[in-house]
Each structure stands twice: as C-alpha cells, then as structure tokens.
C-alpha cells in the first residue's frame, strides 16, 4: 500500500496510484476533537497539530492542513479577527480605511506576526509527527485576493477599475508579504502551498481583467514560491480561464461545485491535477447514500488516469458537517476509488 505522500505525488504526476487521494480540509473540526472552542483551538499551535493528527487518523485522508483562517494574514497587517462559535473566523474592519492608506502600506514581517509564527510552528509540529509520509499543505492568500479583506470587496473592485497606480502598489506590498509567508511555510516543512485566489475566478472578475491583474500577479508570485503550488478559487468558477491558470505554473486547481468535473477533466488534459468538487454546503445534510453517490459521480468524471484528488469545492469543510458524512465519504472512496477503476468500463 502506498503512503499518502506516494499516492498524492503519483496522482499529481498524472498516473494512477492505488486509489484516488482524498484531501479533506476540516480545518475547524479539530476543535471538536479536543473539546475546545474554535477560538481556543486556534490559539496554540500544539492544539492545531493534535487536532489535525486526530482528524487524519479518523477520516484517513491524504494530507494535513496547516491552515488556520484567512484573516490570520490580515492580522499581520494589524487587522482584527471576528470569532464565531459555529464557523470560520472572519476578518474584522478593513485595515485600509482610505485609499490613500495604500500609499503608506508596508509589508509586515512574518516573524513579527504572532499568528503566522503559530502557523509555522504548526507545520514544524506536523512534520515531526508524519515526516515525509503525508503531504502538509500550507496556505497563502494571493496578493490579488487579500485586499478583499484588507479594504472591503466593494472598494477594492473600484480600486481595480479606477486607480491602476494604487492597485499596482498594493500588489507590490502584498506580493512581498505573500512570498515571505509562502516560502517560510515551505522552509518549515510544508510540502506545497495552496495559493488561495478566489478573486481571479470568472465568478468575480471577467477574463480580460484577470489577464491584466490577477493573472500577472499569479505568474510572478508562483514563479518565486520555492515549491509546488495549487490554486484554489474557493467555489468560484474557473473553466473560462483553464489555460490561463495553467500558464501561472500551478500544479493543481480547486474546482467549484458550480462546474462539471467532466468538463474540467476534458479541459485539463492531464496537464494539471483537479481537486474537488464535493458541495460542502449541501454536505451538511447528506445521507450516507448521498455521500456515496456524490463520491462515485466525482470519481467517474475525473478519476481516470490520475490527476484527480477528491475534495470539497471550497477548501474548507463547514463546521456543521457531521462526522457521519465525512466517514461516509471516506467509506465510499474505499468502495469506488481503488485503481484501476474497472467499474467504469
């Protein structure tokens, strides 16, 4: 039997491993395992390490995630985080309150940001526990998508359209920060970086604008990340920019539940790996039979020839998804995900 690392690397090499790899990202469920609130859970690296290790054993997935929550990066810029009892922490008030603030914005240093240091400790702790047997996924918000939290989505859209000079400066600051953060995670032991870039999705901006903005930023950024990167559009559509995404140098793409995995498989042509696309919101109320049906459908559409990792469509399993569903997904994978996929013939 392959290790999780061998399985994932084989799939990403566009070959068929022993079974379809599973990337579950139950980032908050570790708090349940440890009997902690979500806020307490994310307050110490050892909690997240222990939570991730327990979830790995429980759901038998093929990766560990060092992701805390998106606004951890905004905290580094001096922002606040709002914690909730039943969902992911969110960014508080924007740190860029006036457009002019961008003119004076400086990239924070990773080692001076307590939250990011905790993230690095988490990666080191996970690496000590699993060595090279299980991939450890680090996460960096793309320089292009981070401003949604830094200044608010509406003002940021206006900035993109109306203030190209300030937009360029903001990208430069964010890129410096993103590279230091991503490369620090690689140095701490991450196997790959999930380049979280929802704004680049065609759900959010048109392709023509993406090519002039998020695409350029991604090309420059991914080239300088010292390891493989997977791009996640966080439930946003991406079929209209498949070749553009590939041109950024990404090794994999997270696929939305709003799009058909079969269309993605045809478009990818084994040039990069697909990650997805189980519907995390619906998953909350799936029966075991539904879970099996969804897993089977996803594998049928994208499993052949490798290049596919079963996952949810957002990169984070909602807090409300019960254990039974996640275990049913795993059981279904055992039943239908073993290569060769003879049942498809």
């Amino acid at each position: 039997m392959m290790t999780a690392m061998q399985r994932v690397l084989t799939a990403m090499g566009q070959q068929e491993p022993d079974r379809v790899p599973l990337f579950l990202f139950p980032t908050m469920h570790g708090a349940k395992e440890l009997g902690l609130s979500i806020r307490e859970y994310f307050s110490r690296a050892e909690y997240v390490v222990e939570g991730q290790i327990r979830l790995l054993a429980k759901y038998r997935g093929d990766c560990l995630s060092a992701f805390y929550y998106a606004s951890l990066e905004v905290e580094a810029f001096g922002g606040d985080t709002l914690f909730f009892d039943n969902g992911p922490p969110n960014a508080g008030e924007p740190i860029i309150r006036h457009d002019e603030d961008i003119d004076y914005l400086e990239p924070p240093r990773v080692m001076e940001a307590a939250g990011l240091v905790r993230g690095l400790e988490t990666i080191r702790g996970l690496k000590e526990r699993v060595g090279d047997t299980v991939p450890i996924i680090g996460v960096a918000i793309s320089p292009f998508s981070l401003p949604v939290m830094q200044m608010g989505f509406d003002r940021y859209i206006e900035l993109i359209y109306e203030q190209p000079v300030r937009f360029a400066r903001l990208m430069a600051v964010n890129q410096t920060f993103c590279l230091e953060w991503a490369n620090a995670q690689m140095a701490a032991g991450a196997t790959a970086i999930c380049y979280f870039d929802p704004l680049s999705s065609t759900t959010n901006i048109p392709r023509e604008l993406y090519l002039k903005t998020g695409h350029r930023v991604a090309v420059e950024t991914l080239r300088q990340i010292q390891g493989p990167a997977a791009t996640h559009l966080a439930s946003g559509r991406g079929l209209g920019i498949v070749d553009d995404l590939l041109a950024t140098g990404t090794a994999a793409v997270g696929v939305s539940a709003l799009e058909d995995l079969a269309d993605w498989k045809a478009a990818a042509r084994n040039r990069f790996t697909l990650i997805g696309n189980l519907n995390g919101v619906e998953m909350r109320r799936w029966t075991a039979a539904q879970a099996e049906s969804e897993v089977k459908t996803a594998i049928a559409k994208a499993g052949r020839g490798g290049g596919f990792i079963l996952s949810d469509n957002h990169g984070e399993i909602p807090w409300q998804v019960p254990d039974d569903v996640l275990l049913a997904i795993r059981d279904a994978l055992d039943r239908w995900g073993r290569y060769p996929l003879d049942w498809l013939e």
Binding site: D154, I157, E158, I160, T203, N204, I205, P206, L209
Partner: peptide
Amino acid sequence: AGKIALSQIYM
C-alpha cells in the same frame, strides 16, 4: 449563468 462577473455587476 456564469457569463459575466460580479465586478461588472457591481460597477
């Protein structure tokens, strides 16, 4: 229908 983007709707 996925034909235009949110930024276009907003503007």
